[in-house]
Each structure stands twice: as C-alpha cells, then as structure tokens.
Design a protein around this nucleic acid. Structure first.
Lengths: 134, 134
DNA sequence: TCAAATTTAAACACTTCTGCTTAACACTCT
DNA sequence: AGAGTGTTAAGCAGAAGTGTTTAAATTTGA
C-alpha cells in the first residue's frame, strides 16, 4: 500500500519551506521552475487538508444525522434549524449562535458563498453536542 | 478542491458497516457484489490509514533528521545506532530498546521483513526525544 | 514605484485510483 | 458437508492526480 498522501516531491518542498527557503531557492535546488514549486507546495497543503477532512469524517460515524442544510439556504437561518432538530433528539448543542456559524464556515469554507449555502451540507451531532459536517 | 480522501461509495459502505450490516447485505442494498463491497471497504480503510500517515509526517517537519536505517540492516541493531546519534545531538530518546523496536515496526509494518530493514528508513527526532519515521 | 516573491491558469504526458465483474480461496459455524 | 461471511486476484474502462512547462497576474516589501 502507498504510504501517506504526500509525494516525495511534496515532502521535499515542505521541508525546504520549513527551513525558510523561498520557492525560487527551492526551484534551483531541485532543478525546476519556481511556478512548479508553487504548484507542488499548494498540492501538498491541499493533501494535508484532505487528510484532516478524512479523519474528521470518522467522527460523523459515531454521530447521528441531524439535518441537511439545503443549497441556497441563508447561513444565518442554520442555527435555528440545528437547535430545533437537536432539541427533538434531546441533545444540547455545544455551540451558541455565533460560534456555530463560525464553526460552519471554518469547517467548510468552500461550501458557502457569502451568507448562502452553495451545496447541501449534512449535519451530524454526537451525544456531547459536538457538530460535524459532511 | 476535492474534500476528503473517501469517495461517497466508501463513506456509504463504512456507514452501513458501522450499523453492523454484513458485506452481503450492503451489496444487496447498493446493488453490487459482495466482493466489490469488500474492495470498497478495504480501500476506505487504506485511505484512513493514509490520512493518519500524512498528518504523522507533519511531526517530522518539527523534528531534525537523526539518521538513516539502510536497507538490509538488522532491526535489532537500530536502537544502538539511534541512541548513539541522539547522544551526539544531546537529546534523550524517549523509548527504551524494546519499545523503540516496537515503535519502528508499528509505525511502518511494510518496511520490515522479519528482522531486516527492507528499504531505507529515515529517522527523525524532536526535542522531546520523540521519534518519527519517513 | 520597482523588483522579488508568490499565485494562477492552461495544456500535456504519465501514472495511479476507482468501481466493477468474475472466479477462486479461507474461515467459521451447525 | 454446506451455508454464510469475508478476502484475494486479474483485468478493464473511466476518472483523477502528478509533475512539467509556459505565460500571465497578483501580492508583498523596501
């Protein structure tokens, strides 16, 4: 089985970056263009995000499906929906209105355009009142 | 950017498995063969392992390169090498001989054949004496 | 403002992954 | 021995990822 998500190229670039080198310097060292170093570094960071998302998903396995935030919904209406559904299930949500919205946006920046939900977001809740999105 | 590592198919299978369904039952539900369900589940678990490995790598970024365990080396000789190198760097290794070997094998089962190192293993150490392999 | 650093986009070959089928094999029950 | 469950292997078509180059755009700092 293949090891991690990161290619050797990507690890190499991340290590040099950690040492404080510029993309140009790295490009010279590994004999390619600085644009390519940029691409590789970006891919590496994306892979790291994907790794985090993947493990995050595991939590949703322990959590129950709470509701679906449909595409087009106003983000500010999400908390009320979530609180209502959680109450039906007899679980107290761990977040207040403000931090709930922040958590939504932070957990999934790409899924929102301004105040609007771009595509359906599944909401899960565990018995501690923690929320997860998928 | 693509979200996590897991495909919808893989998430679907993991969810049903979590519910306690057999591969055959899932195969019936999602209309495919049980062999395929097995393949999908296996791929899912591999992806989860890869996600863990990826984040594990990040620790090596904070760690310094300690030494390389060359392919063909006897695994039992690894601790002495590591202790010697760590001493040179003035860092105390967090593991005793036995747990060090266990950690080596656990962190990277595929890289060893019996007592022999199959391919080069890079060893990193942080200031706490924690070891990471890459 | 100027130059360096970084980011983005498009296109291209190459490789890898994914889901799928079929068929065989192993293990554990009763 | 037979049924149920899980695993493995080979092969295939379609999708996605990787490293590259070239060229243009944007951000940043002095």
């Amino acid at each position: 089985m293949k090891q991690g998500l990161l290619t050797n190229r990507q690890k190499e670039v991340l290590r040099y970056r950690k040492q404080g080198l510029t993309q140009q310097q790295i490009a010279d060292i590994i004999k390619t263009s600085k644009a390519n170093v940029c691409t590789i570094e970006k891919a590496a960071l994306e892979n790291i995000t994907r790794a985090r998302d993947t493990l995050e998903f595991l939590y949703t396995l322990d959590a129950a499906h709470l509701c679906t935030l449909k595409g087009g919904l106003d983000l500010l209406k999400a908390p009320e929906i979530i609180y209502t559904e959680a109450e039906k299930m007899g679980v107290k949500v761990k977040y207040d209105t403000v931090s709930l919205i922040n958590r939504l946006r932070d957990a999934n920046p790409d899924r929102f355009r301004g105040r609007q939900v771009r595509e359906d977001v599944e909401v899960y809740i565990n018995e501690d009142g923690d929320l997860y999105f998928g």
